[in-house]
Structure formats: structure tokens, C-alpha cells
């Protein structure tokens, strides 16, 4: 699966306003609502579910990355966005270090296999140091969109 299959370019937040986990999650869900990918009526519920999920076990996987995600019936296909923080956000990460790149995903509940494919795609790029570095250094939405597009293209080339 390509990143562009689920990452919503116009919902990307290149400079997160908040440095606090719950507020960052709220900001990103809000951005998906603004982009028309999540119905506004479910905004509160989705935000709360993601925070709840995060409390059960942090998705801060280390190396400055967190991947908060849930399944919710209000979305028909997987939607995701990215938020970047120069200051760092405390996500209670495995390595205790601050998070600079937050990748948030909402998947429909009825297709767990497709959710796994999206995660596979995301992590195949996230485990590359250059990808993480460029993501962290990006200043604008355009730079992040370019990075995602290049990542998708490099994946294609590798498979040819």
C-alpha cells in the first residue's frame, strides 16, 4: 500500500501548536475534520478514543515517532495525517524520549487486514533513518507531501 492511499495531504500539520499529548491528538483529529475526512459529529468521540488507547499503551515507539491510531465506524477508508513538533511532545514513549513526528491513523473496523497493510507501509518508511530525519526537519506541508511522494516512488522502484 502507498502512503498516498491513506495519508491526507491537506490535513498535515507541519508545526503543531501544542507540546502536550492529548492536545496534539485533538489538533490532528481536528485537522482531519477540517479536511473533510472525519465527520465533525464524531470528532470528540474519536479524539477521546485515541487518548484512551494511548493511555492503555503508548504508541510512542521510540526514535521520536508516535503512531496513535484507532478503528472507528465513521470512516469508510483509512485516513491518516502527520503532525510535526520542533520542541518535542511527551508521549510516554518506550525510550522515554520526546516525540517529534506524530502519525495518526483512523481505520474502519471491518477490515483489519487493510489496517495492517497501512501500518506495514508506514513502518517500512519510518524504520529508515533518512525518512525520519527529513520528516523531522520539514518546515512546511509541501515538504512533507514531497517526502511522502518520494517515499512512495522509491518503494515502487524497489519492487520493479
Amino acid at each position: 500500500m502507498k502512503l498516498s492511499d491513506f495519508m491526507v495531504g491537506k490535513a498535515i500539520v507541519p508545526k503543531l501548536k501544542s507540546q502536550e499529548r492529548d492536545a496534539v491528538i485533538t489538533e490532528l483529529v481536528d485537522s482531519l475534520v477540517q479536511a473533510g475526512c472525519v465527520p465533525a459529529a464524531h470528532k470528540k468521540e474519536i479524539t477521546q478514543k485515541i487518548i484512551e488507547r494511548e493511555k492503555q499503551g503508548s504508541t510512542g515507539i521510540g526514535k521520536g515517532i508516535a503512531v496513535p491510531h484507532i478503528k472507528h465506524p465513521s470512516v469508510k477508508q483509512i485516513v491518516g495525517t502527520i503532525g510535526c513538533s520542533k520542541e518535542g511532545v511527551d508521549f510516554a514513549s518506550l525510550d522515554k524520549a520526546p516525540v517529534y513526528s506524530v502519525l495518526l491513523l483512523i481505520s474502519p473496523p471491518n477490515n483489519p487486514d487493510r489496517h495492517l497493510e497501512a501500518m506495514e507501509s508506514l513502518f517500512s518508511h519510518l524504520q529508515r533513518e533518512m525518512f525520519r530525519k527529513f520528516l523531522r526537519q520539514a518546515e512546511t506541508r509541501e515538504e512533507i507531501e514531497d517526502l511522502l511522494q518520494e517515499a512512495d516512488e522509491s518503494q515502487n522502484n524497489n519492487r520493479l
Binding site: 515507539i61 521510540g62 518506550l94 483489519p112 487486514d113 495492517l116 497493510e117 501500518m119 506495514e120 513502518f123 517500512s124 519510518l126 524504520q127
Partner: peptide
């Protein structure tokens, strides 16, 4: 022992 790598397996039921 790597969370990123294990998640990358995307092993379905």
C-alpha cells in the same frame, strides 16, 4: 526485539 520491524511484518490472521 524491534517494534518497527515486527509491525512491518503485517501478519494477518
Amino acid at each position: 526485539k524491534s517494534i518497527m520491524q515486527v509491525t512491518m511484518l503485517a501478519a494477518t490472521q
